[in-house]
């Protein structure tokens, strides 16, 4: 998980809704006029040709190094055997291994459920930490301890603690859930601590005078938060939130240690049954297919943000 400090902490430059249209005026330009560093810079056909050529050269060099390495053949066989990759992808229960391709669905489901719960729990934590009423004092302390604790303890330990500890308590219902449920619980507990800090940065990025203006109209604190502060805060934190969700997607693989048959665990089972690691390559590819679109989407939002800010600065 990455630092969110660079986002949303600047009330003066916070993007605002109204500037979307203004940003469009700059969209055709690049470099100094607001595009920022882009993956494919503008500059027409020649630039495209140059970047294509240089990409091919770099790729060729990497493949060549891989190919001439002394252990190349062995590595290719154990990690990139097409037959093994296909077998582990489709799975074969009769031979004792599961389909990595099917198992990734568990990762996706865990991710989706965890994401919704994290967004809700983290918001509650952030609002508690931002509260000022003396009545809330014990809850503020609790929220602070919570965040400190779960940001400090490695996620893997949380997964173990929940996945092994809770069943050992032998409570009715709570102690008889599946590994995936404990895994999701651990992810939610841990990530909520991080995401609450993202929310907090977002709330702080909205200038105090907005709250004063809302309250001065006779709106209650809750209503002011709901309609005035939160919408502006959320707009500022979408990119860092997406960033955290990219790492959440791959951290669902940690639930493997509890024995849930997700992609990583399915790959592990294949490799120990067949003694070939190509199944891990399949799992890696599947995770990349999941995370890359989200990463590109995040880039686009950040880019849009930058253009908006610059458009705002112009006017």
């Amino acid at each position: 998980m990455t630092s969110q400090d660079s986002f949303g902490a600047d009330p003066l430059n916070a993007p605002v809704a109204g500037s979307v249209g203004a940003g469009a005026g700059l969209a055709g330009s690049f470099g100094a006029s607001g595009r920022g560093p882009r993956l494919l810079s503008g500059g027409g056909r020649r630039a495209v040709a140059v970047s294509t050529a240089s990409t091919l050269v770099v790729l060729a060099a990497l493949v060549a190094i891989f190919w001439v390495a002394p252990g190349s053949a062995a590595v290719r066989h154990t990690f990139f055997s097409p037959a093994d990759m296909w077998q582990s992808f489709i799975g074969n229960p009769k031979k004792g291994y599961y389909s990595v391709g099917a198992a990734i669905w568990l990762n996706i489901r865990m991710f989706l459920v965890a994401e919704v719960l994290i967004l809700a729990l983290a918001l509650v934590i952030a609002l508690v930490r931002q509260s000022t009423s003396p009545v809330m004092f014990p809850f503020r302390v609790l929220a602070m301890v919570y965040v400190d604790f779960f940001r400090g303890v490695p996620l893997l330990l949380v997964v173990f603690a929940i996945g092994l500890g809770v069943p050992a308590l032998r409570l009715t219902f709570v102690s008889s859930q599946s590994a995936a449920v404990y895994g999701v619980s651990a992810l939610v507990l841990s990530y909520s601590a991080y995401v609450s800090e993202v929310y907090r940065a977002g709330l702080n990025s909205v200038h105090r005078s907005q709250l004063a203006a809302a309250r001065s109209l006779g709106l209650s604190h809750g209503t002011a938060l709901r309609y005035v502060i939160l919408p502006q805060a959320l707009r500022n934190i979408v990119p860092p939130l997406l960033n955290d969700f990219i790492s959440l997607q791959k951290d669902t693989a940690l639930v493997a240690v509890l024995g849930a048959i997700e992609a990583n665990e399915a790959a592990q089972i294949y490799s120990s049954t067949v003694f070939n690691f190509s199944s891990f390559t399949v799992a890696a590819i599947l995770f990349l297919i999941l995370t890359i679109p989200l990463a590109r989407f995040t880039d686009r939002l950040i880019d849009r943000d930058r253009r908006r800010r610059l458009a705002g600065a112009v006017t």
Binding site: A17, Q210, A213, G218, V228, Q232
Partner: peptide, 18 residues
Amino acid sequence: MVRRRVGIVFQSFNLFPH
């Protein structure tokens, strides 16, 4: 209730930008 009876306008407008 009090604030609904007493409007205040600030130097810096403080309109809701969104």
